[in-house]
Amino acid sequence: MVPECRHEFEVAALVRAGRWPDACEPGLRAHVADCAECREAVAVAELLLEADRGAEVHVPSAAQMWWRLAVRARLEREQAAARPVVWLQGIAAACGVGVVLTALGQVGPVLSGAAASVASRVTATVPAALPAVDLAARVPTLVVVAGALVLVGLGTTAVYLWVADE
């Protein structure tokens, strides 16, 4: 069981107010003289308060603090507002990567066929016809892929310019 006294905080308040011991009721003074808890409370309060009174404190002025807090609030608000744009940029980049990979998948066989043909001509040991690649059939796909790439490029640049301008 912790010893406790209901006057402990009252006495500490008197010390804080600078009313201990002179401006205090004689009855309370007599109580403190007999109460170990209150005596300790007085001792601790006096020690801590005296240390605080003598401490050198350099805090910014109210105006400076308000200014810093206002700037921080604005920066956080701007960051919050820019978050959707960053997400949009991420999605655009992911789409771009997807389109490039698809395009490579489409163009890959054509390139590999052409490379094989060139290799076979260079070696020229056994002249042979180029593999039959139907480029005419691939033209619409290539046009779509090229168009998509241009659109993604333009879109990303537009988003970048918009964010930079903001």
Binding site: R29, V32, C38, R39, E40, A43, L47
Partner: peptide, 12 residues
């Protein structure tokens, strides 16, 4: 930690 002198402060 502060010793008996600190405790003696409480005696008004």
């Amino acid at each position: 930690l502060l010793g008996p002198d600190a405790r003696a402060r409480g005696g008004a």
